[in-house]
Design a protein around this nucleic acid. Structure first.
Length: 466
DNA sequence: CCTGTCTGCCCC
DNA sequence: ATTCTGC
DNA sequence: GCAGAATGGGCAGACAGG
């Protein structure tokens, strides 16, 4: 069957049809229908454009943002040298890729020039969509979930099969390509593979240890929750790579850790899950803000690495030597993890049904400078890319003593009250108040009246509305 | 060199 | 990361 | 309760321009 090439205009038409449809099922039907008419080279560009991403896992960036678009739009339209036919959907995508490839001196000007050329080929409606694509804000209600459903519908496969494949490869365009070309068999062949990072499982919040322990089944694992960056470590023979939560390769940023880990994971192949934490010389954990200085740093990385040593704490394992473990219960995975990893790179954990012991463990985590704990159901499988209630994080609520240093008269319902408060924190070292923010929430009407009265009695100056 | 501006499926 | 909203 | 969309703060790299 021969398929007609899609113009960018066809793409826009589908976008606006989906956007103006409120029913999710209808959107899905339109999308599935369109997917079926695409030739193989058009699948990936289409998926990327409609989800407003241009790139998925690639280490590439567009380098065009708000400022560049604004400057290009201000230039207005120029007359094209040749009257060209309608631009194809794939061509628009390729041009965006080409823009991303421009680097080095005067690259910004060149990028803007190319963008200008592209805008000039488009109608005003097409331009609007292109702008939305560039900002990653297509927002027509065709997000990840709907696209997966549409792929499933297009090839008449169960949604779970498509989802499973997507979670294993972590790339929507590739998933669509495999599904639409290779069908259900193509999807089934996809397996978890080393150096193919997958989306990590996430935890939901619990109020306190008691609530967490009860909902985790009474007897549960309690692990330290570290204040660092979530990472996935992949090993095969002598090669080791470290990926971030969003599947970015961070091996370079943590080159020292990567080296150290090679001798500490005893498996031919493995994918493990953990947290990287910065430590001070005296062995105290440092806050995330310190760690982040190493992430994606290039300049003076060795010096920074020396100054900010990091440790890793592994708490799960997804794959070992050809075996995918995500469907196995937590306890079994932990046993495997303990059998392949050195004890000094494992997250601190206890397994208990005793609330007192769990709470003591939590207190100890806080005292040692960690964020709190994560309480885990012992039977829970590892659900890729999902926020699950089988993992419950508990951390202390942030509280701060603040002083109201300014207020604005309210509008509408709050007319006559001071309702917008500037808050400051007292800086001991410099003996002065530092404004840290502003709030207008969290008070009842009576409290507003009371605060207005008290603030007026304490007033030192007034200007305009403030 | 240094400094300011823009950008980023950034990290949390 | 958190917060809000619509389903 | 869930998923999606919107939001914030801070940080470093790349480039432009002096």
């Amino acid at each position: 069957m021969r398929k007609a090439f899609k113009s960018f205009k066809d793409f826009i038409e589908i976008c606006s049809r989906i956007e103006s449809t409120s029913s999710i099922l209808k959107k899905q039907e339109i999308l599935a229908g369109f997917l079926k008419t695409l030739s193989r080279d058009e699948i990936k560009p289409f998926i990327m454009l409609i989800s407003g991403k241009i790139f998925e896992k690639e280490e590439r960036e567009l380098g065009i943002g708000y400022r560049s678009v604004l400057s290009v739009l201000k230039r207005g339209k120029i007359r094209p040298l040749l009257e060209e036919g309608p631009i194809s959907m794939v061509d628009v995508y390729k041009r965006l890729v080409r823009i991303s490839e421009i680097k080095g001196e005067s690259s910004i000007a060149k990028k803007r020039m190319m963008l200008h050329g592209l805008y000039n080929m488009l109608s005003s409606e097409e331009r609007e969509y292109l702008t939305r694509i560039i900002f990653g804000e297509v927002r027509i209600g065709a997000s990840e979930g709907l696209i997966l459903k549409s792929i499933a519908e297009a090839i008449k496969a169960p949604l779970d099969e498509v989802k499973r494949a997507y979670l294993m490869i972590g790339d929507l365009g590739e998933t669509a390509e495999i599904a639409l070309i290779g069908g259900r068999n193509g999807l089934k062949r996809i397996k978890m593979k080393v150096f193919n990072p997958v989306k990590p499982m996430l935890a939901t919040q619990a109020r306190d240890v008691k609530e967490a322990l009860i909902s985790a089944g009474g007897r549960a694992a309690v692990e330290f929750k570290y204040d660092g960056a979530r990472v996935q470590v992949h090993v095969k023979d002598e090669v080791l790579r470290i990926y971030s939560r969003s599947l970015i390769d961070l091996t370079q940023s943590f080159f020292d850790l990567a080296d150290e880990l090679k001798g500490k994971i005893r498996a031919k192949e493995a994918i493990v899950d953990g947290e990287v934490v910065a430590f001070s010389e005296n062995g105290k954990p440092l806050p995330f803000q310190i760690l982040v200085r190493r992430i994606k740093r290039i300049r003076k990385l060795p010096e920074i690495a020396e100054r900010i040593p990091v440790r890793i704490f592994l708490f799960d394992v997804l794959y070992v030597d050809g075996k995918t473990l995500i469907d196995r219960p937590y306890m079994e995975r932990i046993r495997v993890l303990e059998s392949i990893a050195n004890p000094d790179i494992l997250a601190h954990r206890i397994i208990t049904s005793d609330l007192k012991k769990a709470e003591d463990f939590y207190e100890r985590a806080i005292k040692l400078g960690h964020e709190g704990v994560v309480v885990k159901n012992l039977l829970a499988p590892y659900i890729l890319g999902s926020r699950e209630r089988t993992w419950l994080k508990v951390k202390p609520a942030e509280t701060l003593d603040l002083v109201i240093v300014g207020a604005e008269w309210g509008h509408g319902r709050r007319k006559g009250w001071l309702s917008d408060y500037y808050l400051a924190v007292y800086d001991d070292e410099r003996d002065k108040l530092e404004i840290v923010g502003k709030t207008f929430k969290g008070l009842t009407d009576d409290e507003f009246r009371e605060i207005t009265r008290r603030l007026l009695s304490l007033k030192v100056a007034e200007e305009g509305n403030t």
